[in-house]
């Protein structure tokens, strides 16, 4: 039995990791909400953002956090373009299946290009505050992990505020809830859906920069992220942002706690166990509403 302080340390690390999972799962939920699309390429864009942060840091020495000012607008535009140019052109009858394949192919292209341009070598950003950290009730927390969590939390809060308190957010939520009704109210749902997609991809930009701070990155890393993220949104109930956040926190913490007893790879299976258990016993997910029933 591990000591209490070790368990506490794991809980803290789990919360910090869960924050990042929650932000990324929120992005996936957004895509699903506006388009009924499962975006396999989400984590590929995550790794792309991490690579951009690493590259900018290596070439110019700027702090990786500053790359956010470039990557967030860039990814937003890429998301809008992807929705308008690719996904809306698929046949509505087979949209769900075909969009999975289309985003899968985007993920393959990104992975292949990253491998071609930056080679398959593992990369890591070295910062002067990389090794900094502090003690908190007996648990040691690395500063970079806290920064990453802070970014994820800020982005999530910003997203929440935007969705709840702006006119655009209202239009977006109306589009998600009932597209035809939103159209009747004069909302340009096509444009709003495009922006919603862009917002989702912007979460990948924030998440990727946070990831680059304290993780070793390589082109095929995105497969290790997409599985857990997919599991989170299914467990949380497709289309439910709070559900995704709760599932992200719970599973992130479980993974972190299991790492005490098992190896890292075995601990990762917790996501898949949760996924299969959810589908076997409660296919609509634990927090999903009406939307999740049919998926």
């Amino acid at each position: 039995m591990p000591s209490a302080s070790l368990v506490f340390q794991s809980v803290v690390l789990g919360v910090l990791l869960g924050g990042l999972y929650a932000l990324l799962a929120a992005g996936l939920t957004l895509y699903f909400g506006v388009m009924r699309v499962v975006m396999i390429a989400h984590s590929a864009f995550l790794i792309l953002a991490a690579y951009l942060a690493w590259y900018a840091h290596r070439e110019t020495g700027v702090d990786p956090l500053l790359t956010l000012f470039v990557t967030v607008p860039l990814f937003f535009a890429a998301g809008v373009a992807m929705q308008r140019l690719l996904l809306t052109r698929l046949r509505p009858a087979t949209l769900t299946m075909m969009s999975v394949l289309l985003t899968f192919s985007v993920a393959l292209v990104i992975e292949g290009l990253l491998g071609y341009v930056f080679s398959g070598t593992q990369r890591r950003i070295r910062l002067d505050y990389s090794s900094a950290g502090f003690e908190f009730l007996g648990a040691r927390i690395a500063a970079v992990k806290l920064i990453a969590f802070g970014m994820a939390a800020l982005a999530l809060l910003g997203l929440y505020a935007l969705m709840k308190h702006s006119r655009f957010g209202q239009a977006l939520r109306a589009t998600i809830q009932h597209r035809e009704a939103a159209q009747l109210l004069g909302i340009d749902t096509d444009r709003v859906a495009g922006y919603g997609f862009g917002l989702g991809l912007a979460t990948a930009a924030v998440g990727g920069t946070a990831l680059a701070l304290d993780t070793t990155i390589y082109p095929s890393l995105h497969w290790h992220w997409i599985g857990p993220l997919m599991a989170i949104i299914v467990v949380g109930g497709l289309g439910s942002v709070p559900g995704a956040a709760i599932a992200a926190m719970t599973l992130g913490m479980l993974q972190s706690l299991l790492q005490l007893e098992l190896s890292t790879t075995w601990a990762q299976t917790v996501f898949y166990v949760a996924l299969f258990a959810t589908l076997a016993f409660r296919p609509q997910g634990f927090f999903g509403g009406r939307l999740a029933q049919r998926f």
Partner: peptide, 11 residues
């Protein structure tokens, strides 16, 4: 159906 099935197959 649909999306979740693909997710499970990838998982």
């Amino acid at each position: 159906r649909g999306a979740s099935f693909v997710i499970v197959s990838i998982a």
